[in-house]
Design a protein around this nucleic acid. Structure first.
Lengths: 193, 193
DNA sequence: CTCGTTTCTTAACTTAAGTGAACGAATTTA
DNA sequence: TAAATTCGTTCACTTAAGTTAAGAAACGAG
């Protein structure tokens, strides 16, 4: 199970047995059941998550409705906003499927960075890469219509359409569930003609 | 001028004279005129930018139109997508005002990280912070209407409304210039009643 | 200062998303 | 397994954004 993590890291740096053991000894691996809420609105936390298996989502409670904004699947990580700004969380994080995660806080990271500086390099490169990709995704979102965003999701993350309930995907696409339903019907209609 | 950078870095770590000199000797400070294009679509580049003074923007050429998606002002930095994915750039970067920037590539960074590891720590923390904030901004964007996004921009970055032509702000808000104009008229009308 | 271009606004019309409600299907839970 | 809840679709209606076009205002180059 932890090999999933080591395989992923090995794309960036080679790990010695010592280093692997240091990570294992941090006891960061967690198995969580579908539906588990990892973080609640208003709560303070220092934990960041990395998904080894399964899927977690972030969502907001607005006017009594859940609005999902992001989904994290295999080999994707999330540092909640509240960890960075040291304020109560604006959103919830929950598990969509039974999942295996790593959970770590900045203190644990500091400890391991101290012992093995190359981990810090990996983390720096990873977050710089993610930041550039995230900016590019944001650009694409701004430049396209709901229909284009749906079609692009269909291309890029077809798995999400299977794993995630449609009404949660709607807010992820920036629209209402009814609009997503209508938009899908429109696309099917177009393809028939 | 370079004190702008050192003041900014000093929020994260203290710098010795040695370290400051090492940065200065990299010769990364650039003064650029308004209108200068720093990166073109299709071009490959390894340069990242950090704005000490002025404003730069990223934009796409779509159907012969410029679509602006991001603006970077004082103490904001940008690593273009093409630096990360080693592919030709999908977008342009240009200067909106006469600006003072730092321009650096990964090799230069590696050099300084090697000499002074604490720079790598600063960069890691900065990009992790930015990533979490960026994700939060993206969430807000998805959850709000064009009108709400405009009002929120008015609150959070009122300077942009002064510095940036309105038709460039439109695509930044994910809408057409005419819609932004209409939307503003609507808001003024509401406030009158 | 003037001419030409760019930028902003307005208007009329089209298209699509938001909203509220209803209904059947699917899923959960008691 | 039955009842209850959640989920997805559809419909009618409202509201706002996209589109096309035209004209006024601001700006910039020569």
């Amino acid at each position: 199970m932890q090999d999933l993590l080591f395989d992923f890291i090995s794309k960036y740096v080679d790990l010695t047995e010592d280093e692997k053991n240091a990570i294992v000894s941090l006891d960061i691996f967690r198995s969580v059941k579908k539906g588990t809420i990892l973080l609640k609105e208003g709560q303070k936390s220092n934990d960041g998550y990395f998904v080894l298996k399964g899927c977690i989502r972030t969502y907001y409670h607005i006017d009594g409705e859940e609005k999902s904004t992001a989904f994290y699947t295999e080999m994707e990580g999330l540092t909640p906003h509240c960890v960075v700004n040291k304020a109560p969380s604006e959103y919830y994080i929950s598990c969509i499927e039974d999942s295996i995660l790593t959970v770590a806080n900045p203190e644990m990271e500091a400890e391991i960075f101290n012992k093995f500086p190359k981990f810090e390099t990996v983390c720096r490169i990873l977050s710089e890469e993610l930041l550039a990709k995230q900016q590019f995704n944001f650009d694409e979102f701004k430049l396209s219509s709901p229909e284009q965003r749906y079609l692009s999701l269909l291309q890029k993350r077809p798995d999400l359409l299977q794993r995630v309930p449609q009404h949660q995907l709607a807010s992820y696409l920036g629209i209402q569930p009814q609009s997503l339903s209508r938009l899908r019907a429109r696309i099917i209609e177009k393809n028939k003609r």
